[in-house]
Design a protein around this nucleic acid. Structure first.
Lengths: 343, 343
DNA sequence: TTGTAGGCGTTATCAT
DNA sequence: ATGATAACGCCTACAA
């Protein structure tokens, strides 16, 4: 079956290419009669416009790119799901690239996306300065929206969560359960860590509990192996303190869930010897033993809203007048077994 | 900064567009001297060929599509990671769409991909007949490669794992540990279930242990909620049998990990009261308590090989002469706490 | 209301 | 060895 183009339709209908084109695009210049005739004929022949040609002509690709540092935890999968659902509805396609927490890779991702053509980019940067000049430059033409790691110094829409409030609420809960010695496990060089530690400190201040600096741990999260080693070492260090913590807050999906594994490996009972709570979006929170108390992020919403926002920018004629939003969605605390014991 | 095209380069160099194009494409018709001059000038001006135009001209998109029923478990993330890595190396881009285990969505995914232009499609079908006629028809022009759920009746390359051998080995291990009453938890209407149950039966036959049909459970896996309900109900049913099983084999990531959660919720001790092993690719196998014995699939390889195979097809001139391969990669068993007790 | 012609950026064919 | 020209499929002034 030869491919059906505007030209072939035009020939079949004995009309000109432009008439057919205009009819299909509902141009006001075309009579209703011809329109319906053309449309009927087109569907009968299963006409599919060539999007490549459309793109070349209009400069619009109807594609948005997503650059994300990793895809391994459910948090990211859920964000992507949200993006895809929203994009599909608007007839956009989604190109995902993985920067693998590597700045050079991130750079090549960005360049490749621009080269191959995307209308906009949803971007979760490696860290707060990564490729900032490149992004600033490109964002003059191609709109960027920053998600998740929103402490990134470009003027645009940003969609993340109330990180400070999340850890604040977790600490508050631990305090309510009688804990006074609470450690926090963060990722080194992760932008979100700062905000989440801030919530931790603030909660302590409000509850009039002094912050012990040695309770604040920064872990290398580049690889699972390094994380394991670091977690194992630091948890033992915490346990050997004159005043070992009775509870611990994890700052990300990976850190929180893996802590639970390390604790079990070390034979430390949760929640009897130490309570655990942390950011985590995994469906497995329930399946862990003990089931894990979590700070849950509305990941799907982050994705959906990010897409909506980039579309907003694309639909604006004059981009220099947009008021940039820094959206912070609330987290929710889900209490399970791992924090169940009242001291 | 105005955009730099062949035309603008040509003007700057005082040459014709075609000379510049040929020089950049290393045509034998162009002298080395001009080539180097052109190339230097092009890089100096940061020339990036317009891929859209290239595509329109050549009909090649350098894009491959991936259609996958879900992205929620690590198994899928790892496959996608493998695809993306391989594709990036070959300068291909990857478009991922999620069929959400829904046949209508799958259909729209396929159509949309074809419409928007991909050179080939990596396809994990919902089930063995889903959209088979559509796929057969489209695959005349756009090559398909089937991955993971390879029991799908089209002639093409297929990449999966040795499902039968996987469960066979798991059962064998359980038998070695002294178990004789082994249940298996599969997904209803999942193609892979059949093969994996076959391995279960075969292992029983070889070990001369009769297969008890009531030990073979088919679960509704459409949603986490339904899975939970089904698992909870069936596990209790198994426990109430005159001869309750002492071990259970899970047939997928989700089923296996969630069983562990349900068992803990029901207060059933693993591995003391029941041993658990199953297909699972999660990094959390270790973090679970008890740590989970798993049948691990080389998911990243599945992805990488699938991409390589579709590239193979694209590079062949005469596709009707290709000998289709049905590649089955071996799984590996990782033994941990959840099967540790010797009966 | 319809048709003609030109162009988006590239590649390929054919002259020079 | 280089250049002119047409074409990929579509859109859109502009002309009729």
């Amino acid at each position: 079956m030869a491919k059906v183009t505007l030209k072939s339709l035009a020939k079949g209908l004995n009309m000109s290419v432009s008439t057919v084109s205009k009819a299909l695009n509902d141009s006001y210049e075309i009579s209703e009669e011809t329109k319906s005739k053309v449309k009927a004929y087109a569907t009968a022949h299963n006409y599919q416009p060539n999007i490549i040609a459309q793109t070349l002509k209009t400069g619009k690709t109807n594609t948005i790119g997503v650059i994300i540092p990793k895809m391994s935890s459910p948090f990211e999968s859920q964000i992507i799901e949200g993006i895809q659902e929203a994009a599909t509805k608007e007839n956009f396609r989604v190109v995902i690239m993985n920067s693998m927490e590597n700045e050079a890779m991130e750079k090549s991702n960005i360049s490749s996306m621009v080269a191959k053509g995307v209308d906009g980019i949803l971007f979760c940067p490696i860290h707060e300065h990564s490729n900032i000049n490149l992004v600033k430059q490109i964002s003059e033409n191609t709109p960027f929206v920053i998600f998740d790691r929103t402490n990134y110094a470009i003027d645009t829409h940003k969609i993340g969560v109330l990180n400070t409030e999340g850890t604040h609420a977790a600490c508050q809960h631990l305090f309510d359960m009688g804990h006074r010695k609470v450690a926090i496990l963060g990722g080194a060089h992760q932008g979100i860590t700062a905000d989440r530690v801030a919530g931790y400190k603030q909660a302590h201040k409000e509850a009039d509990i002094p912050v012990q600096e040695e309770y604040i741990i920064y872990l290398n999260v580049k690889s699972v192996a390094e994380l394991h080693e670091g977690l194992s070492r630091n948890i033992q260090k915490l346990r050997n303190l004159p005043e070992p913590p009775t509870a611990v807050v994890g700052i990300s999906d990976t850190i929180t869930t893996h802590s639970l594994g390390i604790l079990s490996q070390l034979g430390i009972k949760v929640p009897q010897e130490i309570a655990v709570i942390g950011f985590a979006n995994t469906d497995l929170a329930f399946s862990l033993n003990p089931s894990l108390s979590t700070i849950y992020q509305p990941a799907k919403d982050i994705g959906a809203i990010s897409f909506a926002k980039v579309l907003d920018i694309l639909n604006k004629k004059y981009r220099n007048q947009i008021e940039w939003e820094d959206i912070k969605l609330p987290t929710t605390i889900q209490l399970r077994e791992s924090t169940k014991i009242n001291l």
